[in-house]
Design a protein around this nucleic acid. Structure first.
Lengths: 194, 194
DNA sequence: AAATAAACTTGAACTAGTTCAACCTTATTT
DNA sequence: AAATAAGGTTGAACTAGTTCAAGTTTATTT
């Protein structure tokens, strides 16, 4: 059960559980291996799963009317990813979620998750903590986006997420940070000259 | 117990509860009346409460190094407000939360909330649902900010939150939408001419 | 190993949104 | 009722970041 170890650790870092409880929890997740450029979520289809990344890197993005891609989220090892709105409300997705590298995921579907939460209040607590931290994380991103220039947003990102910054394509990072690829290229180049 | 009625309804809209359970839940909240321009959260102090708005309007904002204010959240009747990061991690706040009008709040403090969640798994479920919807709401805001122009952001806001748009000062709305007061003034004026 | 596709860079012209300053209007306080 | 503070408007000059187009580098496929 090698793939489940990191999820068990993730769980135990957040709530106190017996070994049996932890094993019951993870037994509800299925291993999913995907190849680079493969999609696990697409617009108009309901995102059926919450995905835990065991290995690899993924990207969630939306495409607007003019065809521009905007990165909403990245996920690497020990992160969760899905179309959040689609999953929690079980409504059609607006995002693509695509593998940036070959990846190994642990997937749970909406109904199974609901049963887990009913079966043991500790599991409900786990998902509550997860949702709270997700909300707090999103709010910090909103604040950064409102208060910082393009260069400051880039600087903050590389100090906060150095492992992600060096692993994803520049155009994906630029659109996550709310700027064009060209402008990010210029920011990086200016730094080298200084 | 007139002030508690709206919170009871809010609760029952989200989870199924007996009358006694609902009463127990709300009995842990204290009524707090505040005057216009009064603060309930300030930078460097821990946000001790989660605040439910019974009546009135509030605004959460940050002030950057140059003294510019950026609105992070509004709250009117039946909304929650606090410095989210400060409250859930019980760390010093970075925001101000101020009354835009005289207001009546129902406040619960962090420790009391923790006890409530332990006392009844349904209460844990309530806070989980609340956090999930908060995260989903924040993510929609991130998407809008990344994908829309200033005018489009304003248009979406007035269609989604007409009651808020007409009740808060323009400069506060402009900074929520990530633009200057002057530019929002011009957007509104352009519309009138059309 | 060559061919092709994907990702990144550079510069010049442009524009959406900002800044500043002065003025006007609407609330709030005395 | 007058005085003051807070909120909103307008225009002119500006700038941070975009767009477009062409070229270069790095991966991926055959």
């Amino acid at each position: 059960m090698e793939h489940y170890e990191s999820l068990i650790k993730h769980l135990q870092d957040r709530i106190e559980l017996s070994e049996e409880e932890a094993n019951l929890f993870v037994s509800n997740f299925k291993i999913k291996k995907i190849k680079k450029r493969q999609f696990i979520v697409q617009p108009d289809f309901v995102a059926k799963h919450r995905n835990y990344v065991v290995e690899g890197a993924l990207r969630a993005y939306v495409v607007n009317d003019e065809g521009q891609e905007h990165t909403i989220a990245f996920a690497i090892e020990d992160w969760w990813i899905s179309d959040y709105n689609s999953y929690i409300y079980q409504q059609p997705a607006t995002m693509f979620v695509m593998a940036l590298e070959d990846a190994v995921l642990l997937q749970i579907d909406f109904e199974t998750e609901a049963k887990l939460k009913m079966a043991n209040p500790k599991f409900e607590t786990f998902f509550r903590i997860t949702a709270e931290r997700t909300a707090a994380f999103f709010q910090r991103r909103i604040i950064t986006n409102l208060t910082s220039s393009a260069e400051e947003r880039y600087d903050k990102f590389i100090t906060q997420f150095p492992l992600i910054a060096n692993r994803v394509p520049q155009y994906a990072l630029a659109s996550y940070l709310g700027m064009t690829t060209e402008f990010l290229s210029k920011i990086k180049n200016n730094k080298l000259k200084k």
